[in-house]
């Protein structure tokens, strides 16, 4: 499995899951926080990926 994007999504899922469960107590809040964090991680990585696109190292 070498899809960088899938690995990024998988990583974002696990980190969001653990942080949401750690920080919130009710399942509803955990779901909301987890979804927000997951979306934030993936969106930020996607945007930063495109911002770095013109500057190959």
């Amino acid at each position: 499995m070498t899809s960088h994007f899938l690995l990024l999504v998988l990583f974002a899922f696990f980190v969001s899951l653990v942080f949401a469960v750690l920080l919130r107590d009710s399942p509803r809040e955990q779901l909301r926080t987890g979804a927000l964090m997951f979306g934030g991680f993936v969106l930020a990585a996607y945007v930063m990926g495109w911002l770095m696109y013109p500057f190959p190292l």
């Binding site: 990583f11 696990f14 980190v15 653990v18 942080f19 750690l22």
Partner: peptide
């Protein structure tokens, strides 16, 4: 996937510290 593997391994440990 070597660097991804390292990231998963280290992050799992750091999250467990939390």
């Amino acid at each position: 996937s070597y660097e991804y593997g390292n990231t998963f391994l280290m992050t799992a440990g750091l999250l467990n510290f939390l």
